[in-house]
Simulated assay, not measured.
Amino acid sequence: MKVSKVTVGAGALLLLAALATVLLQADAYVTEGPSPQYITSFPDEPDIDGILITVGIAVGRWFAGALPYPGLSAIINAIINAWEPKPEDDYWSHVHTQVEELCGTFINEHNIQQVEIYKNDLMSLLKQYERSQVDPDGSYPDKNTIADALSTSIITNRYLIEAAELPVSMGLHFMDISSVHIMVLKDAAESYTSEAGVSRWWVDLANELDHYSTYGRWLQGETIRWRDTNIECYFDEADQSCLDFEWTGIDCYDEYTIRDHVSNYEEDCDQVHPDSPEDGSCHRFCDLYQMEVNRGYCWLAEP
């Protein structure tokens, strides 16, 4: 019996194809909006539920002017409200569910827990930034100081995401933190730019966009490679002892088997042995499954 293994072509789980799109085009993850039964924010803030709208999506839409909330305070308060631990509508559990759907059991639980702990510190800095002023009266640090502290904190701690094992499972957390970082840098750059001069924050913004874009492209390639190696198709050709007697009119059967090690899905397809491989009824079995996987994750990079 002749057995060969065919690895299914790379899928379109472009988790970080969304980075430049979310941060620059700002509406990569288009959804219909949260259901009426699921409200996590106050009426005057965007709703960030961790299912339909993540922090990365909300910040992206804010950049694009696609949210009816013009003030920075509204988006910051919505992020803090979503991230604050609460017994109901738990942002972390919903994001974790999405990560499991993408990665199966291949999740870096330890680093995810560390990132969620770190986000408590990030919430504190965001609260300070929301209260800061460009020209304060001296009773509170100025926006420049808090922006520097927040940016330094993110750069210091992003190794939790970017240097982690199983980086694909850290993608949504990467989107959250990177989008917050870019949001603050952009606001600081605009706040300190005037007719008298252009803020140096624009240089920081350009540098960090370059960093996130570079890492995002790497993670996109890593995601494709990783997903590809976890979906396999095995081809089991009809036994030669049967093929030797095909001239008598008997049917000999080939078998294709798909094994998806992420979803633990397995499926077989049997076909009458064809004269040429492309004529077989199961010839596109693996490709069609891959297309179905791609459609299942199309929300990751839906324009």
Results as ranks from 00 to 15, higher is better:
A18D: 08
Y297M: 11
E292L: 12
A189P: 05
T193S: 15
L205F: 12
H283Q: 06
S153N: 09
D137K: 11
G221V: 12
S199F: 08
G221L: 07
N157L: 02
W299L: 08
E292W: 10
E130M: 10
Y129H: 04
P274A: 00
D275A: 13
V180M: 06
S139W: 08
C282K: 00
I112V: 08
T257G: 01
A82V: 01
V184N: 04
G65C: 08
A10Q: 09
D27E: 08
S139V: 07
D49F: 00
W201A: 05
I154V: 13
V22D: 15
R217P: 03
E88N: 09
D142N: 15
D187Q: 11
R295W: 14
A189L: 08
T248H: 03
A301D: 15
E109H: 09
E165C: 04
S199E: 07
A58N: 06
Q98I: 13
K143R: 14
S241R: 10
S213Q: 13
A196T: 10
A188Q: 03
E278S: 09
L16C: 13
M123W: 10
L67E: 08
V55S: 01
W83Y: 12
W299Q: 08
G50N: 03
V99P: 04
K186V: 03
R295I: 11
W202R: 10
P68L: 07
P43E: 10
I39W: 02
A78D: 03
T31P: 01
D244T: 04
L205Q: 00
Q113G: 13
T152P: 04
P46L: 00
M175E: 06
F235V: 15
T229F: 11
E195V: 12
A301L: 15
Q25L: 12
E208D: 12
G216T: 12
V3Q: 15
E255K: 13
P68C: 05
I155H: 04
E195N: 14
N120E: 13
L166A: 02
K143A: 08
E88D: 14
H110L: 10
E100R: 14
A64G: 11
D204M: 08
H283W: 13
Y29M: 06
E190H: 07
S139Y: 12
I155V: 10
D121W: 13
K119L: 15
G50Y: 02
D210V: 06
D27R: 12
L166P: 00
C103F: 00
D142W: 04
D27M: 05
L205C: 05
E232T: 14
P70D: 06
Y129W: 15
C242F: 05
G171H: 05
E232N: 09
S41M: 03
I48Q: 01
C103D: 00
F63D: 02
D176T: 07
A164K: 00
W226R: 03
H110A: 12
G56P: 03
N157T: 04
D287P: 01
S194D: 14
S124C: 14
Y289H: 02
T54Q: 03
E237D: 09
N144P: 01
Y29P: 00
L185R: 02
